[in-house]
C-alpha cells in the first residue's frame, strides 16, 4: 500500500512533529508511515484523514502486489 501523507502534510505546511502530536503518536511513527515501513491501523488512518482534512482514498491507495 502506498500513501501520499508526506505530500499532503507539506501542502498543509505541517511538520512531522505537529502531525504526530495532532493524532497522538510519535514522530518516528509518522516517519515510518511516510516511508512505507509501517502500514497504519484503520484507527490511525482515520485520524490521519481527519488531521489532514482529506478522504482516506486520496491518502492511501492499493498497489498491484496488495
Amino acid at each position: 500500500m502506498k500513501n501520499n501523507i508526506r505530500e499532503e502534510r507539506l501542502e498543509k505546511a505541517m511538520t512531522q512533529q505537529a502531525l504526530a502530536e495532532t493524532i497522538g503518536v510519535s514522530r518516528q511513527t509518522i516517519f515510518a508511515i511516510e516511508t512505507g515501513k509501517y502500514i497504519p491501523s484503520a484507527i490511525l488512518v482515520l485520524k490521519l484523514s481527519k488531521a489532514l482534512a482529506k478522504p482516506v482514498e486520496s491518502l492511501f491507495s492499493l498497489e498491484k502486489s496488495d
Binding site: 497522538g24 510519535s26 518516528q28 511513527t29 497504519p40 491501523s41
Partner: peptide
C-alpha cells in the same frame, strides 16, 4: 513502555 508508546511500537 517507550517514552511515546503507540501502535507502531506495539507492532
Amino acid at each position: 513502555k517507550e517514552k511515546e508508546e503507540d501502535e507502531y511500537v506495539a507492532n
